[in-house]
Design a binder for these strands. Structure first.
Lengths: 208, 208, 208, 208
DNA sequence: TATGAATGAGCTTTCATTCAT
DNA sequence: AATGAATGAAAGCTCATTCAT
């Protein structure tokens, strides 16, 4: 068999992927506005114009990247509605998702944090929509946690959401900043557990 | 007496302040790269060219803003070296500084979070230097906390730093995002205490 | 018999015609410079690259269209040299040619008017050559008319040419602009006669 | 007196005029779409960016040019409503306006003819609006002429309009094409009278 | 001090043309 | 013959910075 011959339709997918990966890296390095199409094309090892053969604009390319991120995240969270996952399991799954993604695609996570999560005030309507949906879905977990008396009620559920996500983001940012790749599965475990413990302990009802 | 005639040097200070305030607002609204000198001049109610009379470049103007932030922060932290402040007092002071600043100059805090703290990978050498100094100084508090057995030792001091700062940032971000001004001193107190409790509880040694 | 199998050269002709027709329409709709090869290929229902299989460039394709126009026109006018056609007959034939062509290929006439006749200053040497030959040939008719005393001599023959062609063009332009197809043979007749009468009456020697 | 010192506000007007003149020339030479801002800037003897200091876009610059044309034309035609000008006087005034303008600003007339009058199918809504208003206003003259029995009634008033304007345009085009400047007032008179005679004679009722 | 005109490098996007399959 | 991916040269527009007044 000839493994070098892709199916024709694969070719498009392949190139798209090459461009998306390159874009991901460049967007992470420079941010959306400072990233130049030239950089992306060079990183992808293709010509300038080809980027526009596959994506209709820089914004379109950026959205394609974000879509990958959100799709994965919402798929994960939709499962929880059907399964009867506990609050801790859900939060653990969220932490794990961020760390997993960071291991596989650190650029993607970095883009989410810097370009979406922290600049939420300047988002386009579509991007803001996804982001708010994500916040709402996370807050729902906190509300359940409060009603089950495993999370303090004297802090608004929305604030708990911010603390939790902030901690995750900080960790990932830290690793990005210090260029610490997540080396082992064990290290990932340790971080996930530590993070979750700190949050659950910190946010548990005071006299429980 | 002629109240309109300031001392010459005051006049300079006044204009500088006007420009800095305007820049602060514009940088917050659009981010450094998207902010245009035109916007700043218009916001300040002065002419285009005058900005360049007081600041030699856009970057220079931005640095002047950051300097204000870092100066306040390092003044605060230098005191701790001479005084014998407890870990909790120091952390509380940090939280309070962020919240105070947010109350007085929300734009400044926003800029710190979005342009410095979260984009640390892209900072200029000078800016990165300040930022790392701040992280180190904060980590020192955590190390002391660990040696005094009030913070868990099984989480690296640097990680504790990230969790702590991440929580602060998340809170402030949340308020920025939701346009929540800090209305009362009481509200500020409540948030500061809540934040500190969550962290100290979460990070305290497990079998203590 | 197999009606699907053309002689090879027929097939080439067919495709060429399809492309030419499509190009004609697109050039008319957008003008030469704004017309894109993509548009032409899509209109022709063929692939992008195939256009370049049949025509070596966009300009080449455009020239092929013009050639069709000029060929018809010069064939008509060459006949007059051998036949002894009267001035009125020749002018009537010209009007009729424009109206006939407009009925059969309105796009072609439109292109002639907008891209050739009215932008003569920007024509390529080849295109300008055709155009000037046409003007000269028409002027010859006017000169004869003047020598036979059926056209005023106090207006330069070249000016008479412009007035005459201008009137034809205006009519056709009008129909193009108002999207008026030439519905009936009778309507065509009426317009042709009207046009000719206005010109001949207007241009006849004053005290004749 | 110092004639070199303009009033400050004149400076803006001056530069605007310089740019408009340059643009006029370039648009005439290359047409709107082929004209490059670089060309205009170079022709005007200024830097690239300055064009955008005075006009917000290429289209805006073009519209400013057209406005000059239409303003003059409509001012002329509005007068006729108040005065009791005869049909012939009005038509003569139109011819004269075109010839006058051609003498003063041949580029402007050329642009009107090639970019507006002959490409009417592709005009932007605003440009089409002006153009249609002009056609209507001219048609009104023809209608009056028909009711006063000095123009044939068996040709639609709209068609008379096209013949008339077509003749004017042809003349001007001819002069543009052959680079014939209108040298003397006498020559202008001769052309105007000739043109009008041809039209009035050609279009007069047949058995009058 | 203060103004805003002037400059030009830089970036996105388009599209004719080429080329591998 | 036929396809459409690939290339890269334009060209419009923006905006930091400079400069004359």
């Amino acid at each position: 068999m000839n493994f070098n011959n892709h199916h024709p339709s694969d070719s498009r997918k392949d190139k798209e992927t090459v461009i998306l990966d390159a874009a991901c890296r460049v967007f992470r390095e420079k941010g959306f506005h400072q990233a130049r199409i030239t950089d992306i094309a060079q990183t992808a090892g293709i010509s300038y114009g080809l980027v526009y053969h596959y994506f209709k604009s820089k914004a379109d390319l950026f959205d394609a990247i974000l879509k990958e991120w959100w799709t994965g995240l919402f798929e994960l969270m939709e499962k929880w509605d059907s399964e009867a996952a506990s609050v801790e399991e859900q939060l653990a799954a969220l932490v794990t998702y961020f760390l997993d993604q960071y291991q596989k695609k650190p650029d993607l996570v970095h883009i989410f944090i810097t370009e979406i999560s922290r600049s939420a005030a300047n988002l386009t309507p579509t991007r803001l929509h996804w982001f708010k949906a994500f916040l709402s879905r996370t807050e729902k977990i906190m509300v359940v946690g409060q009603s089950r008396e495993i999370l303090r009620k004297d802090i608004k559920s929305r604030y708990l959401t911010y603390i939790f996500l902030g901690a995750i983001e900080s960790f990932v940012s830290a690793m990005v900043l210090e260029n610490q790749p997540l080396r082992s599965r064990a290290q990932k475990q340790r971080i996930a557990i530590g993070l979750l413990q700190v949050f659950m302990n910190g946010a548990k009802p005071i006299n429980s």
